[in-house]
Design a protein around this nucleic acid. Sequence first.
DNA 1: CGCTGACGAGACGCTCCGTATCGCCAAGCT
DNA 2: AGCTTGGCGATACGGAGCGTCTCGTCAGCG
Lengths: 204, 204
Amino acid sequence: MPEPKRRSEKSRKAIYDAALALVAEIGYPRTTIEGIAARAGVGKQTIYRWWNSKADVLLEAFLDLGEQAEQAARGEGAEPRQYAIPDTGDLAADLKAVLRATVDELRDPKFEAPSRALAAEGLVDAELGRVFVAKLLEPSLQLYVDRLRAAQKAGQVRPEIDPRIALELFVSPLAQRWLQHTAPFSYAYTDTLVDYALYGLAPR
Amino acid sequence: MPEPKRRSEKSRKAIYDAALALVAEIGYPRTTIEGIAARAGVGKQTIYRWWNSKADVLLEAFLDLGEQAEQAARGEGAEPRQYAIPDTGDLAADLKAVLRATVDELRDPKFEAPSRALAAEGLVDAELGRVFVAKLLEPSLQLYVDRLRAAQKAGQVRPEIDPRIALELFVSPLAQRWLQHTAPFSYAYTDTLVDYALYGLAPR
DNA sequence: CGCTGACGAGACGCTCCGTATCGCCAAGCT
DNA sequence: AGCTTGGCGATACGGAGCGTCTCGTCAGCG
């Protein structure tokens, strides 16, 4: 309904910053739209004009944060849009390296608070859940699909395996341990997951 | 602080019923303590006297529901406290059967709304999360640990495998698909998970 | 340069929160 | 059986945050 051409870029950024800061400082449940507006030096209406809920605000803020980090990491060069999983020819080593990096990332408190809050809200709010999965989760999972397909061509993964299911053998356990704190996660743990998934539980 | 001896059993049950009904009917976020009290025909203070939050109420209500279902299923006989995973000697078949039953259970709308709400709240509320994992999740996972250990004795699982990690290869993917709707789940899917986990992704 | 519409600010009615305070009545002790 | 105690349903309370609406103001487009 509003006119995007006249939208204030400054307010938009200020709202992102305020939302991320508040969620990190006082937690998602105690973060309010009124609080975000006050912190951003913005009228409430400006938030209600462009977003439907505080979850929407946080989701966009987090996506924006990701894009910024991506651009910063990329430097000046204009490279292809998405990172990829390394392919040294050794599938187990590549997967272990990526999962170790993921462990580090998940431990970064800057990412932890908002992504945990969004995951939680996505479980209960179906619409938000769809966007969360589509915009944040699936693109990452697709990288594993690609790497596993390459491994299939190299004969390191059986050809009849469905990569979209296979990746869940190591990604989902890590996600669950992180989200639900069912057990601690470490490099040793993710390494073990890769070994179990590649070579199976049964005797060979 | 209050005196449990004088506690009204009738009110307690009425509050459980009201909480479960409201969560199923209007969803967790729109369920309020005032609403539960009104529906149960109970004063608000009676809820605040015995519980700290609506999540606490729902958690106890859900646990109570589980105990009722367990007793009903058990019938008159006084059997050991917990169900177990069948052991026909065929590990793959046993796991597939249990996971198929789990799929059915997760699809039951009576369980879906409250358990999903509790899982979501547990992601953000650390204290509730601990109780949720300890009281609801871990006891179920322990059954898999037991079954996998039996399989190790029978030589169907390599002896150096850690069962607590191994079970995550098929349980976590199912949990994630259910919670986050990342992809549909079916009998074919859970069967595939068991096959991948037992025999691995790499050529044998 | 003149319009238009987003902007910051804040008032509004509303719902729900969590607390306090009523008699009332049933459980538990003597 | 009588008395005391404390949980009970009910309701009022102040406060927080919701989402809407309405002010001038002012920046950007044509």
